[in-house]
Structure formats: C-alpha cells, structure tokens
Simulated assay, not measured.
Amino acid sequence: MTLLFVADPLESFKTHKDTTFAMMREAASRGHHVWACEPADLVWVRGARVVARRARAITLTGQAERWFEVAAEGELALADTRAVIMRKDPPFDSEYFYATHLLGQAEREGARVFNKPAALRDHPEKLAILEFPQFIGPTLVTRSAEAVRAFHAEHQDIILKPLDGMGGMGIFRVGPDGLNLGSIVETLNQDGAQSLMVQKYLPEIVHGDKRVLVIDGEPVPFCLARIPQGSEIRGNLAAGGKGVAQPLSPRDREIATALGPILAARGLLLVGLDVIGDSLTEINVTSPTCFQEITQQTGFDVAKRFIDALEARLK
C-alpha cells in the first residue's frame, strides 16, 4: 500500500537515530510504497482535492549517506494514498496549524491521517497534561509575572519554559535565591504578551527525563531515560542528554495504561509521554521520537510495533 510521510526535508534526516526513517524502513521492508513530502507541498484548490504538489516516491538504499533514491516525483492526492503519516517536527507554529487544517480537509475527502489532525490541534504538547492532574507535579500556566513569583515563593525551586519550545529550548531553572527570576519571566512572557509554564523542579531528573512511547493505546515495554550531562538541567537528547533505555517502572506503566486508551480513541496512534520520577511532564503528539535508541539498546523493535498498529488500523 502507498504511505505518504509528511515530514521535514529528507536530506536533513540523521538516519542513525531518526524515528521517521525507522518507520519508513520498516514499511519498505514489508513491500509498502513509501512517498514523502513537506508541509509546504500541501495544496488545495476549490473543486479539487488536497494534493502534495511535489511528492517523491523513494527507495531506501541501505547506505548511510545517500540513504534514499527518488523513484518518482509529482503531484499526489492524499486521498489516493492508503495512509498519511504526519511527522513534521515541532514547533507547533502557525504553519503547522494550517497544515493540520489541510490534512483535515484531506480526511473529509477520504484520506486516513495519523496522528489525526484535529487531535494534533487539541493536544498541545505542554498543555495536554492539564487534563490529567492526578499524574503531574505542581504546575502553573500564566502570563502573570506576579503569579510566577508567588509560585516560586511557595515551591522555591522551579522550572520555567515556553509553551512552544522543543528539544529543551528555552528552559530555565530558578532556585531558592530567585536569581534572575524577573529577567527570565520577562524573556519568556514578553512583558505579559505570552503564556509560559512553570513547574516545581523535580530532583529525579538526575535519573532521566523518561520518554514512554504509547502505540495505539499500548505502552512500549521500554522507555528511554534521557539523562542530563555535566551541569546541564535538561535531559533532552537535542540538549546533549544521554539516552539510556530501561524497562518501564510500575508508575510509568500506570500513567501509560491510564492515558493510552483515551488518547488512542481520539486518533493519536503514536504518543510520547515524558515522565520525570513519578510525574508526567509532557504529552508529545506531533513527532514522538526515540524508536531507534530503544530498539538498539533492548532489541525490542519499536518500528515493527508501530507499522503493525498502522496496518491494523487500515484493515
């Protein structure tokens, strides 16, 4: 069957760790036809269907450098594919938002899109945790500098982060001395123009910010603990964190099994839950990663599980 991946430029993939590449490789190994385009390629004209104006059919070479060859290139109607897999990396900016609306129109025309475009819009990765307060630590979302100061006075050691950040970008820690709190708030909330998230610092971060993958409501049995290195407070791999795969803890599994069926029922085939200690900190739905790291370290084939789930949804 034909699968269209909507993703970042193929030339930018780091295939030794890229999750979308792992999905493509598994799909191709089963004989599926792999196509790719970028969100900027999506076009709709009245009286016609949503198309990828520059879609590329690719074959995988098995080489590290030139990892793909273009077998065909041209316009492809999304409804003519068996599935569209939305894998554009964050940030969830205006263009990403508009792309979900084009994908939603493609759904009305008969396309099957994963993750579901409406669910992508309804689950911003920082704010989606608000629905599940029983699993999160002390958290504040606000534009108010005064509210942030009050939260700091109560909890003493806090983390501040923008709502549209990714890869650990823009994350600050402020300890009991409150050093630079005012300046950090001004930077993040743009003098009250933008909301930010504030959370109590969780010392368990030294053991890793765990990425728990949930595929069609079922947790992958291993997570990737992204452990901060040196003086860094961020465990994100993009920020230099060390990824260590490990079995899910009872609390990890409790969170994943509670949220998994709810999110899957909303059209979220793949979700990445971020857990520090016993607390859920984010719900990643745009382009969850860590397939290859978990597979390489444990032998559990995450991409196989994902394509199994995708095929089951398409029956």
Rank of each mutant, 00 (worst) to 15 (best):
H207A: 14
S231P: 02
A99F: 01
G272T: 00
F222T: 00
F306Q: 04
Y96P: 00
R121H: 01
G235S: 07
R253L: 01
V113I: 15
Q229V: 08
R143H: 09
H152D: 06
T59L: 14
A309W: 07
G170S: 13
D308R: 05
E38V: 12
A303Y: 00
R211E: 09
I255F: 05
P250T: 14
Q246V: 05
K17R: 09
R251H: 04
V185L: 08
A153D: 14
V212R: 10
I159V: 11
T81K: 08
D41S: 11
G110N: 04
D301G: 00
N189Q: 05
L140F: 11
M169F: 10
L4P: 02
L163A: 02
P117T: 00
F135Q: 12
L310Q: 04
G267I: 11
G104Q: 07
E131A: 12
C290Y: 03
R234D: 09
R112G: 14
L270P: 06
I184A: 09
V6K: 12
R87C: 01
G110K: 03
G272S: 02
Y96W: 02
E73N: 07
I58A: 10
P176Y: 04
G241T: 11
V220W: 04
D157N: 05
R25Y: 06
T59Q: 07
R253V: 02
F132E: 09
F97A: 15
S279Q: 14
M197L: 11
R66I: 13
I233T: 13
T59N: 15
A111G: 05
S287M: 12
D18W: 14
K116S: 10
L60W: 08
F222Y: 05
P133D: 11
G235F: 09
S287V: 09
D177T: 08
R143V: 05
Q134F: 06
G243H: 06
R173Q: 10
A309P: 03
R313P: 05
A119S: 07
L10M: 07
R143C: 02
E73I: 07
L273A: 06
L78G: 06
L237H: 04
V285R: 08
Q156M: 10
